[in-house]
Measured scan of single mutants.
Amino acid sequence: MTSCHIAEEHIQKVAIFGGTHGNELTGVFLVKHWLENGAEIQRTGLEVKPFITNPRAVKKCTRYIDCDLNRIFDLENLGKKMSEDLPYEVRRAQEINHLFGPKDSEDSYDIIFDLHNTTSNMGCTLILEDSRNNFLIQMFHYIKTSLAPLPCYVYLIEHPSLKYATTRSIAKYPVGIEVGPQPQGVLRADILDQMRKMIKHALDFIHHFNEGKEFPPCAIEVYKIIEKVDYPRDENGEIAAIIHPNLQDQDWKPLHPGDPMFLTLDGKTIPLGGDCTVYPVFVNEAAYYEKKEAFAKTTKLTLNAKSIRCCLH
């Protein structure tokens, strides 16, 4: 018999989150649709729960009410004593943790798909938090293969000092899905179709896995975050240069030392320094102006996964 890495157990509980950011409308629209008619997301033997994560922000069509829901799922915020004085999103995070967690427990949901849009030209993107997770690498390989020839990129946010504390991190297997470009507060049919297909293929993978299909060893190309880059700023902290036209919409493309990065209003080009080629992502993302992030630098690498098969009882 072929030796293989056996994944822990079959997958039982899956959640699909929309509206973690209330103005990213593809996930909101799909989740609302699936709450009314969820036939397309159901798979035999699998509990799939669509869920609106930040209903107040969705109602106002804004990213958040008090603070970013997708950055506060750490033990400090989840452990705060519940009171009306807490920011709305912290209270909501505790409610979500109660419903789908608790985080880092045996009772937490197996998989959470968190649906997002970006204003950046990132196409279909899967966000991975753990480079050693054979199950998710296999799932992402399946999704990428199923979507081809449509490109699907994998963004690895594993980093020693950049801690995200994402909404989906309460699950055993957290999956971020990011599709763009799409303006905030807008629905685009092409973007919706791409996100819908990503979810379909992900659920198909889980179904095949649960039925005992063995997935042979595989490898995927990923883009691992190195650092986030702020806009150049003046002495008052105001933005002093904008994304250069040569960099705009060039997510995932190589940016070499000396290539144009920013452009000042008086026409001066600010190039990339250093001696390493990087791959920019979230270029000129609207939501990241407040976070002082013009783009993120990534490096390209390959992740390998062992063969996996479900432990059938």
Rank of each mutant, 00 (worst) to 15 (best):
I226P: 03
L301Q: 10
T119P: 04
E36L: 08
A202M: 05
P174M: 14
E9D: 14
A287R: 15
E47I: 11
K213T: 12
I127C: 07
K60I: 09
W34Q: 01
R132C: 13
N37S: 09
T2D: 15
V281K: 05
H141I: 06
R132D: 13
E36Q: 14
L301A: 08
F205H: 06
K306E: 14
L35C: 09
G19K: 04
L126S: 05
E106Y: 11
I308V: 11
E129D: 14
H141Y: 08
F282I: 02
L255K: 00
A93W: 13
L312F: 15
F29T: 15
I65C: 10
N304T: 14
M139Y: 01
G79Y: 14
Y164E: 15
R43V: 00
H201E: 06
A57T: 02
D107L: 10
C61R: 14
E84A: 14
P216H: 05
H116T: 01
K291S: 10
T20D: 00
Y173C: 10
H159D: 15
F282Y: 14
F215K: 02
K291W: 05
H244T: 03
V90T: 11
H10V: 11
A219S: 15
F73Y: 10
G274A: 03
H313P: 15
D114V: 02
N121M: 01
I270E: 02
A57Y: 02
L75A: 14
D107Q: 13
I191C: 05
D190H: 06
L150V: 14
V28K: 09
P181N: 05
T264W: 02
Q250C: 09
D110R: 03
D193H: 10
K224G: 01
H207A: 14
K292E: 08
Y142L: 03
R56H: 12
F282L: 09
E227I: 05
T166K: 11
F135T: 02
D230I: 08
S108F: 09
R196T: 02
H21Q: 07
V90M: 13
K49R: 12
N210A: 05
F295A: 00
P102C: 09
D275M: 07
D193I: 10
K60S: 13
K268V: 09
C218T: 07
Q138N: 02
I143N: 05
C152D: 04
K81S: 13
A241D: 06
C310H: 12
C310A: 12
K253F: 05
A305Y: 06
L75D: 14
L247I: 09
C4N: 15
N246G: 09
G27A: 08
R56C: 12
G27Q: 00
K81R: 13
I177P: 03
R43M: 01
D259Q: 08
I11T: 01
D249Y: 05
F140V: 07
V229G: 05
H313I: 15
V283K: 05
E76Y: 10
D110Y: 03
N23A: 04
T277R: 03
K291H: 11
R71E: 14
R132G: 14
M122I: 15
F282Q: 11
Q250E: 08
M82A: 14
A39F: 10
G237M: 03
A240N: 15
M261C: 12
G267S: 06
Y279F: 09
A57L: 05
F295P: 06
I96T: 07
H33A: 09
E285N: 13
F29N: 14
F73W: 11
Y155W: 11
F51I: 10
C61M: 13
E290Y: 08
D251R: 02
V222Q: 06
S169C: 09
D234P: 06
M261S: 02
M122F: 03
P102F: 08
F17L: 09
V278L: 02
E129V: 06
K200S: 11
R196Y: 03
I96R: 06
E178Y: 15
Q194P: 06
V31H: 04
P271D: 08
L303D: 03
I199H: 03
I52C: 08
E95I: 09
N210G: 04
G212I: 01
F205R: 04
M139N: 00
H33K: 15
L25E: 05
D204Q: 01
R92E: 07
P102R: 11
D230C: 11
D130F: 05
P271N: 12
G123I: 05
T53N: 06
D68R: 07
I11R: 01
E9R: 15
V229S: 00
Q138A: 03
E214G: 06
D234K: 09
K306D: 14
A241F: 04
R43D: 00
V222W: 03
N37L: 05
M261H: 01
F29Y: 15
K59Y: 09
G267V: 06
K13Q: 06
Y164P: 15
N210W: 03
V229M: 08
G45V: 00
E76D: 13
N54S: 07
S161I: 09
Q42T: 11
V186R: 03
Q194S: 10
G267K: 06
P216W: 02
Q184Y: 13
K32V: 01
W252Y: 14
F51L: 09
I6F: 13
E158R: 00
V229L: 02
L128S: 04
T44V: 09
H313F: 09
I308F: 02
Y153K: 14
K163M: 09
I225S: 14
I111K: 04
I6H: 15
V28P: 15
K268A: 09
I111T: 01
H98S: 14
E40R: 04
R56W: 11
L255D: 05
F282P: 03
E227T: 05
M198I: 15
S108M: 12
V281W: 04
C311A: 15
T62I: 12
Y64V: 07
I65P: 05
G267T: 02
D104P: 10
E238K: 10
Y88D: 07
N236I: 07
N304P: 09
F51E: 04
F140Y: 12
F29R: 15
G38S: 13
T44W: 07
M261F: 03
R132T: 15
G27W: 05
R71N: 14
D190S: 07
Y142Q: 03
D204G: 01
R43Q: 01
T298W: 00
K163G: 12
D66E: 11
N77I: 13
C67A: 13
R91M: 14
V283P: 04
K80T: 14
R196K: 10
